[in-house]
Amino acid sequence: MHDRQGFSTRAIHAGQEPDPLTGAVVPPIYATSTYKQDGVGGLRGGYEYSRSGNPTRTALETCLASLESGSRGFAFASGLAAEDTILRALLEPGDHVVIPDDAYGGTYRLFDKVAKRWGLRYSPAPITDLAAVTALMSSGTRMIWAETPTNPLLNIADIAALAELAHAHGALLVVDNTFASPYLQQPLTLGADVVVHSTTKYLGGHSDVVGGAIVVDDEALAEPIAFHHNSMGAIAGPFDSWLTLRGIKTLAARMDRHCDNAEAVAEYLVGHEAVTEVRYPGLTSHPGHDVAGKQMRRYGGMVSFRCKAGEAAAVEVCDRAEVFTLGESLGGVESLIEHPGRMTHASAAGSELEVPADLVRLSVGIEDLDDLLSDLRQALRG
Rank of each mutant, 00 (worst) to 15 (best):
283 L>V: 10
255 M>P: 01
281 P>E: 06
314 A>K: 04
332 G>V: 07
281 P>F: 10
280 Y>Q: 12
335 S>D: 01
322 E>D: 08
281 P>L: 11
352 E>V: 13
294 K>A: 15
319 D>R: 15
366 I>K: 04
320 R>Y: 05
274 A>N: 11
359 L>H: 00
287 P>M: 11
314 A>I: 03
326 L>V: 11
333 V>W: 02
287 P>Q: 13
264 A>G: 13
356 P>Y: 02
270 V>E: 09
259 C>M: 10
362 L>C: 06
252 A>H: 06
251 L>R: 06
347 S>G: 08
324 F>D: 02
268 Y>N: 13
323 V>R: 07
324 F>S: 05
275 V>D: 08
334 E>W: 08
287 P>N: 09
271 G>Q: 11
323 V>G: 02
314 A>Y: 01
289 H>S: 12
284 T>N: 12
351 S>R: 09
249 K>D: 06
264 A>H: 13
275 V>Y: 04
308 K>G: 09
264 A>T: 11
329 S>R: 12
331 G>W: 00
271 G>D: 08
323 V>M: 06
307 C>I: 09
278 V>F: 05
342 R>Y: 09
288 G>I: 03
366 I>S: 03
328 E>D: 05
251 L>C: 09
288 G>S: 08
346 A>L: 10
359 L>V: 07
296 M>T: 04
358 D>T: 09
276 T>Q: 13
271 G>Y: 02
307 C>F: 02
364 V>F: 01
257 R>L: 12
354 E>Y: 04
356 P>E: 03
349 A>T: 06
350 G>W: 02
334 E>S: 15
341 G>E: 02
289 H>N: 13
257 R>S: 09
250 T>N: 13
320 R>L: 05
322 E>C: 13
268 Y>C: 15
341 G>D: 01
337 I>E: 01
287 P>E: 03
253 A>K: 14
268 Y>V: 13
332 G>Q: 04
284 T>F: 08
300 G>R: 01
335 S>Y: 01
254 R>S: 07
281 P>Q: 08
339 H>I: 08
347 S>F: 07
302 M>H: 01
310 G>P: 03
361 R>L: 07
353 L>G: 01
318 C>Y: 02
283 L>H: 06
320 R>H: 10
366 I>Y: 02
316 E>W: 05
337 I>M: 08
289 H>L: 12
359 L>P: 00
290 D>R: 15
332 G>D: 05
281 P>A: 14
271 G>S: 14
344 T>I: 07
290 D>W: 10
307 C>R: 06
326 L>P: 03
364 V>M: 05
249 K>C: 14
323 V>F: 01
338 E>T: 14
296 M>W: 05
291 V>R: 03
332 G>S: 14
250 T>S: 15
355 V>M: 05
313 A>N: 10
353 L>T: 01
352 E>R: 15
263 E>L: 15
271 G>L: 13
340 P>D: 05
314 A>G: 10
300 G>Y: 03
258 H>C: 11
340 P>C: 11
356 P>I: 09
283 L>C: 12
349 A>P: 00
263 E>M: 15
337 I>F: 04
257 R>M: 08
349 A>Y: 02
281 P>D: 06
286 H>D: 02
287 P>W: 04
338 E>N: 12
273 E>H: 15
318 C>N: 07
308 K>F: 06
331 G>T: 06
294 K>E: 08
282 G>H: 08
310 G>M: 07
332 G>C: 14
